[in-house]
Design a protein around this nucleic acid. Structure first.
Length: 566
RNA sequence: UACCCCGUGGUGUAAUCGGUAGCACAGCAGGUUUUGGUCCUGUUGGUUCCUGGUUCGAGUCCAGGCGGGGUAACCA
């Protein structure tokens, strides 16, 4: 951690434990770690684990390592290692040290021989199916392998043979000798090493035997002096084995503490399901803005600070629950409100014609108006915008027959064009089908900048963009990827049926000219609409692409939906 | 039908050694406002899963139920 100043620790069962260990003297300096397997991309669930381990170290003045749990070369790849490092940094965390489980393969092997010599591990010739079949079931005990009685000497020579490549892949495994009838299936002689002739991204062809998770994880933690090994609930049953290995080896034994993984409505974090979405072409890739991957959320425009604030806020417990997506969105809006510059853009344009504009609506007469960049941040300054006799306004900001509580534009009604003038609707043009093609109005030249010298009020202020100055931009409007808040509920591949067909809608927006210079990676608020992120992948010079991050709260729209349904 | 973990308003979480159930989001109602945003104020929701026990006093301790989750890869 870069900042080692202890901050105010929150209160939860993990921190209570850490505090107690510090007080009792069992632990002098807290050391945690984040141990991803480099076989996939990080998602919001990992963000919680990362935030937890890193911030606990930070709060208690300790250290936190990043460790690649690369014990199975099958699906692991350097590409993922790089992506994971980048994502952790993006969240704003810096590890004190970076390690790889593969760095400990030599030590692990030495320890394996020790266990063999102690008679606590043996080489089994049975194949995978047999081992699985003899493990018993949840309710029935397993049965001993015929190889279980081999002598330490024979096991040692067999183990060396495995290591030296004398046996075919899958023909032999090293197993811990514990108890085939144990109620915890993880203790029914778990496999420690398998023979697998695969090049490892870090150790190359050095090894043809690779350690299993259980045989590696605790010892890696031990070597690094991890004091609190935080992991998710499904590893609870592994803790006894984690401790059995450390105890049998007589090495330092870290404290494993399990917590509930993060679940958020409308989001899926299962690696397998995410893979199905990507491989099935249901999304554009691992960084699709609709995905809960960190890379996806980044392109959606979710600021890392908001993600971390959310993760800290939800806390940590042992109950498996699901968070409302609204809470996450609250943190996103909360952050963006303070940092995003405001701009005007019209996404569903209809023409507003100012009949009394000097020289006529389509005259070259133009006036520059000053607009505030961010009312929450005076330092963001102002910009000027061209105002003319023909403007684009949002189609939904005009209603020919408005309900009583609609106070935007309607025949005879006066509203303010933000930073521009007060305009009064004088009529409407429609096509043969009855669709509004233009809204007509007159403006009050005395209301420059949107200020009425006589102090009269208008109920609404609407946004606009000058027709002849507008730039077109591709705008991608995202919604939840699924129609059901709990897509994981559907088992198998069924969750694909819950995909929201409207999760991405692409429109051409009419944007104020300054948006032509938007750069990838920038966050904006399009006033009265939503927060948008200028995509750094698809935007090109002068042709920005905007991603809707999250809409602004909309009291009007909500009022429309709730009372009479919608 | 084995073992392990868990059970506090709609959601998530808090409550020093047992001592009034708090916070955030959401909801609702006002106020401010050149964004129906932000901000400010007020406010509705809980028999702390149930039953019994210990105690002056139980969300907290004990017992028994009920409910939810997890676990049977040569994956992690």
């Amino acid at each position: 951690m870069t900042d080692r100043t202890p901050t105010e620790p929150a209160s939860d069962f993990v921190r209570d434990r850490v505090r107690a260990d510090l007080q009792s003297g069992r632990v002098k300096q807290v050391v945690t770690r984040f141990p991803p397997e480099p076989n996939g991309y990080l998602h919001i669930g990992h963000a919680k684990a990362i935030t937890l381990s890193f911030s606990i170290a930070q709060e208690f003045g300790g250290r936190c390592n990043l460790r690649m749990d690369d014990t199975n070369p099958e699906a692991e790849d350097q590409e993922y290692v790089d992506a994971i490092m980048a994502d952790v940094r993006w969240l704003g965390f810096q590890w004190d040290a970076m390690f790889y489980a593969a760095d400990y393969f030599d030590q692990l092997y030495v320890w394996a021989e020790q266990l063999v010599e102690k008679g606590l591990a043996y080489v089994d010739d049975q194949d995978a199916e047999t081992i699985s079949a003899t493990r018993g079931s949840l309710t029935a005990p397993g049965t001993n392998s015929p190889c279980r009685g081999r002598s330490p000497a024979e096991n040692l020579s067999l183990l060396r043979g495995m290591k030296n490549g004398e046996f075919a892949d899958g023909s032999k495994v090293l197993r811990a000798k514990i108890d085939m009838a144990h109620s915890n299936l993880n203790l029914r002689d778990p496999v420690m090493y398998r023979v697998r002739r695969l090049p490892h991204q870090r150790t190359g062809d050095t090894w043809c035997i690779y350690p299993m998770y259980d045989w590696a994880h605790g010892q890696c933690d031990s070597i690094e002096g991890i004091t609190h090994s935080l992991c998710t609930l499904e590893f609870e049953h592994h803790r006894p084995l984690y401790e059995w290995f450390c105890d049998s080896l007589g090495i330092y034994k870290p404290q494993q503490i399990e917590f509930a993984r993060l679940n958020v409505e409308y989001m899926l974090t299962s690696k397998r399901k995410l893979l199905l979405l990507v491989d099935g072409g249901h999304v554009d890739g691992w960084d699709d803005p609709r995905l809960p991957t960190l890379r996806g959320l980044r392109r959606r425009g979710y600021p890392p600070q908001a993600l971390v604030a959310f993760c800290k806020h939800v806390g940590v417990a042992k109950v498996n629950g699901t968070h409302e997506i609204g809470l996450l969105e609250f943190f996103v809006r909360n952050h963006l409100n303070k940092v995003a510059q405001r701009r005007m853009a019209v996404l569903d344009p209809v023409r507003l014609v100012i009949e009394n504009w000097p020289g006529g609506p389509d005259s070259a007469h133009v006036e520059m108006v000053e607009a505030v960049n961010n009312p929450e941040d005076p330092a963001a300054g102002t910009r000027s915008l061209p105002f003319r006799g023909e403007l684009w306004i949002e189609r939904e900001d005009f209603l020919e027959n408005p309900p009583k509580d609609f106070y935007r534009l309607a025949p005879g009604r006066e509203v303010r064009l933000r930073y521009g003038y007060f305009v009064t609707c004088t009529g409407v043009d429609k096509d043969a089908a009855g669709k509004v093609t233009a809204v007509r109005c007159t403006y009050d030249p005395a209301t420059t900048g949107g200020n009425a010298p006589d102090g009269r009020k208008v109920k609404a202020t609407i946004h606009w963009v000058s027709v002849s100055d507008a730039i077109d931009a591709e705008v991608r409007l995202f919604e939840h990827l699924f129609t059901d808040p709990d897509p994981a509920r559907a088992d198998g591949g069924d969750f694909l049926r819950l995909l929201n067909p409207d999760s991405r809608r692409i429109v051409r927006g009419k944007c104020e000219p300054s948006l032509g210079e938007a750069n990838g990676g920038e966050h904006y608020q399009f006033e009265r609409l939503a927060y948008f992120y200028c995509d750094d992948r698809d935007s090109t010079a002068g042709a920005p692409v905007f991603h809707r991050t999250v809409t602004l709260k909309d009291a009007w729209k909500k009022a429309q939906k709730t009372p009479g349904r919608n």
